[in-house]
């Protein structure tokens, strides 16, 4: 097909555009199926693990540091509840996620 008319070109263009859509829609369906399959597997794997955890009580150990936490926070004359509130307020005022901030210590300043 060397020389084609404008009409033929228009039909080919519509056909081509439709072909791209069909190809990518089919790929979308394939991707959704793949995603559902792998999510189902992940759920299956997670279910026995959590059941196992329920059966045997976890040994009492110091709670591990939360992911993204930057070390320990020292509190001076401050209740943990109050400290949590202070940290939440600071994060909110700064407009940053709390796990991106590092609090070293919180101290009550007596007047």
């Amino acid at each position: 097909m060397e020389n084609i008319t404008l009409g033929q070109g228009g039909i080919l263009a519509l056909l081509g555009y439709a072909m791209v859509f069909v190809g990518l829609i089919l790929l979308m369906v394939l991707t959704i199926i793949l995603g559902k399959f792998f999510m189902a597997i992940a759920k299956k794997d997670a279910a026995p693990a959590s059941a196992k955890q329920e059966e045997t009580p976890a040994p009492v150990v110091d709670a591990p540091t939360a992911p993204g936490a930057a070390g320990q926070l020292k509190l001076y004359n401050v209740e943990p509840k109050t400290a949590a509130m202070v940290m939440a307020i600071v994060a909110d005022k700064m407009g940053k996620p709390i796990n991106e901030l590092r609090f070293l210590s919180i101290k009550e300043v007596a007047e």
Binding site: E2, L6, G9, L12, A13, L14, G16, G23, M28
Partner: peptide, 29 residues
Amino acid sequence: PKSLLLGAAAQMGVFAAFVGAIALGFSGP
């Protein structure tokens, strides 16, 4: 996966320019 629809839609220029090129006297290839 719905992103794939946007990837398909954004090929509009390919086929529009193809028709435009034919109108300007270029061969099919």
